[in-house]
Design a protein around this nucleic acid. Structure first.
Length: 160
DNA sequence: TCAATTTGACCGAC
DNA sequence: GTCGGTCAAATTGA
C-alpha cells in the first residue's frame, strides 16, 4: 500500500480539481450544495495532509503502523472496505462514504454531533456488537426540505 | 404546538 | 440466525 501513496495523492488532487470545478458550476443560492462541496474539499485537504505525512515517514525512517496516521478521514467507495476497528461496513450503491475519527475531550464533554456546517437530526441509535458504546445515526436536517442526502454515524471509541 | 430525540420493530445483507 | 441500518410511534422540551 505504501508504494501507492504517491498515486493516491495524485488521484485525490485530481478529484479535488473536479469538485472545485463542480463548485464553480453550482448555483450560488444552493446553500446545502455549497456546504456539501466545502466539506468535501476540507476532507480532501485532510486526506492529502495525512497521505503526505505517511509519504514523509516512509521516505525517512523505519516503517510504522499506518493506524497512527488516521486521525482524520478514511475514504471508502462501497467496496470491501473495513472500518478502523476491523469491522466491515456495508455501503449503499453509488453513495460515497468515509470515516472521520475526531478526538472529544472529556473536560468539554462529548456533546453529540460536531458542528461541521450541517444541521444534524438524530434518527436512531444502536448498540454495536463488540463496542463499548452505542452508535448514533444522524441525517442532515435539510433532508426533506432541500433534498440533502448527507447522513452520518457517530460512535465513541472504546478507548476514549 | 412543533421540532427533536428516544427506542423498539422491521428489513436486508451476510 | 445474527447484526447493522432505518423507520416510525411515543416521548420530551422549548
Amino acid at each position: 500500500m505504501d508504494q501507492k501513496v504517491p498515486d493516491l495523492i495524485k488521484e485525490i488532487i485530481q478529484a479535488r480539481k473536479l469538485v472545485m470545478e463542480l463548485q464553480t458550476q453550482l448555483n450560488p443560492s444552493s446553500v446545502s450544495g455549497n456546504v456539501l462541496v466545502t466539506n468535501i474539499l476540507s476532507i480532501f485537504e485532510t486526506s492529502l495532509s495525512m497521505l503526505n505525512q505517511i509519504k514523509l515517514d516512509n521516505e525517512s525512517t523505519t516503517p510504522k503502523s499506518s493506524m497512527g496516521h488516521f486521525g482524520g478521514s478514511l475514504f471508502s467507495n462501497g467496496g470491501s472496505d473495513l472500518f478502523q476497528d476491523g469491522s466491515r461496513k456495508r455501503c449503499r450503491k453509488g453513495i460515497v462514504t468515509w470515516t472521520q475519527q475526531v478526538r472529544a475531550c472529556e473536560q468539554g464533554g462529548f456533546q453529540g454531533p460536531l458542528d461541521d456546517g450541517y444541521g444534524w437530526r438524530k434518527y436512531g441509535q444502536k448498540n454495536i456488537f463488540g463496542a463499548a458504546y452505542p452508535r448514533a445515526y444522524y441525517k442532515c436536517s435539510y433532508h426533506s426540505s432541500q433534498n440533502c442526502l448527507a447522513m452520518k454515524q457517530v460512535q465513541r471509541s472504546d478507548l476514549n
